[in-house]
Measured scan of single mutants.
Amino acid sequence: RTAFSSEQLARLKREFNENRYLTERRRQQLSSELGLNEAQIKIWFQNKRA
């Protein structure tokens, strides 16, 4: 289980509010910017949509 920092969570929530689905390219960008792997971001979005 991933423990996200408050900064990472704030960024993910802001991104989710703008778009509930990420393109592969956007997921790669977020992964690089947040220091998370793409799978972690993908799962976070899946869980948030559920």
Score class of each variant (00 low, 15 high):
1 R>M: 14
1 R>F: 11
1 R>G: 14
1 R>W: 08
1 R>T: 14
1 R>C: 15
2 T>C: 15
2 T>Q: 12
2 T>R: 10
3 A>W: 13
3 A>V: 12
3 A>M: 12
4 F>L: 13
4 F>W: 05
4 F>Y: 07
4 F>T: 03
4 F>R: 02
5 S>D: 07
5 S>R: 04
5 S>T: 15
5 S>N: 10
6 S>G: 08
6 S>W: 08
6 S>D: 14
7 E>T: 08
8 Q>I: 11
8 Q>Y: 01
9 L>V: 08
9 L>P: 00
9 L>E: 13
9 L>W: 05
9 L>Q: 06
10 A>N: 08
10 A>L: 09
10 A>E: 14
10 A>S: 08
10 A>Q: 10
10 A>H: 07
10 A>W: 04
11 R>M: 06
11 R>K: 08
11 R>F: 05
12 L>A: 00
12 L>Q: 00
12 L>Y: 00
13 K>R: 12
13 K>Y: 13
13 K>H: 15
13 K>P: 00
14 R>Q: 14
14 R>A: 14
14 R>E: 13
15 E>I: 04
15 E>Y: 04
15 E>M: 04
15 E>Q: 03
15 E>W: 03
16 F>Y: 10
16 F>R: 02
17 N>A: 14
17 N>E: 14
17 N>L: 09
17 N>I: 09
17 N>H: 10
17 N>P: 01
18 E>P: 00
18 E>C: 11
18 E>H: 08
18 E>V: 07
19 N>Y: 05
19 N>G: 05
19 N>W: 05
20 R>F: 05
20 R>A: 12
20 R>D: 07
20 R>S: 13
20 R>G: 09
20 R>N: 09
21 Y>T: 08
21 Y>N: 09
21 Y>S: 06
21 Y>Q: 07
22 L>H: 01
22 L>G: 02
23 T>M: 02
23 T>L: 02
23 T>I: 02
24 E>S: 14
24 E>L: 08
24 E>V: 14
24 E>D: 13
24 E>G: 09
25 R>N: 13
25 R>E: 15
25 R>G: 11
25 R>C: 09
25 R>I: 12
26 R>I: 06
26 R>Q: 11
26 R>T: 06
27 R>Q: 12
27 R>F: 11
27 R>W: 10
27 R>T: 15
28 Q>G: 06
28 Q>A: 10
28 Q>L: 10
28 Q>R: 11
29 Q>M: 10
29 Q>F: 07
29 Q>S: 08
29 Q>D: 08
29 Q>L: 10
29 Q>P: 00
30 L>H: 01
30 L>G: 00
30 L>V: 02
30 L>F: 01
31 S>G: 06
31 S>V: 07
31 S>Y: 03
31 S>A: 14
32 S>Q: 14
32 S>H: 13
32 S>E: 14
32 S>W: 12
32 S>Y: 12
33 E>M: 05
33 E>Q: 05
33 E>L: 06
33 E>R: 03
34 L>T: 08
35 G>E: 05
35 G>I: 02
35 G>H: 06
35 G>P: 00
36 L>G: 00
36 L>Q: 01
36 L>M: 06
36 L>F: 02
37 N>L: 12
37 N>R: 07
37 N>M: 08
37 N>S: 15
38 E>H: 04
38 E>Q: 06
38 E>P: 11
38 E>F: 04
39 A>W: 15
40 Q>N: 05
40 Q>P: 02
41 I>K: 01
41 I>C: 03
41 I>H: 00
41 I>S: 01
42 K>Q: 15
42 K>W: 13
43 I>K: 11
43 I>W: 15
43 I>E: 15
43 I>F: 09
44 W>Y: 09
44 W>R: 01
45 F>L: 03
45 F>P: 01
45 F>Y: 05
45 F>A: 00
46 Q>M: 09
46 Q>I: 10
46 Q>K: 11
46 Q>V: 07
46 Q>F: 09
46 Q>P: 03
46 Q>W: 09
47 N>C: 14
47 N>K: 10
47 N>Q: 13
47 N>A: 11
48 K>N: 10
48 K>E: 15
48 K>M: 15
48 K>C: 12
48 K>A: 15
49 R>Y: 07
50 A>I: 10
50 A>C: 12
50 A>Q: 11
50 A>V: 09
50 A>T: 08
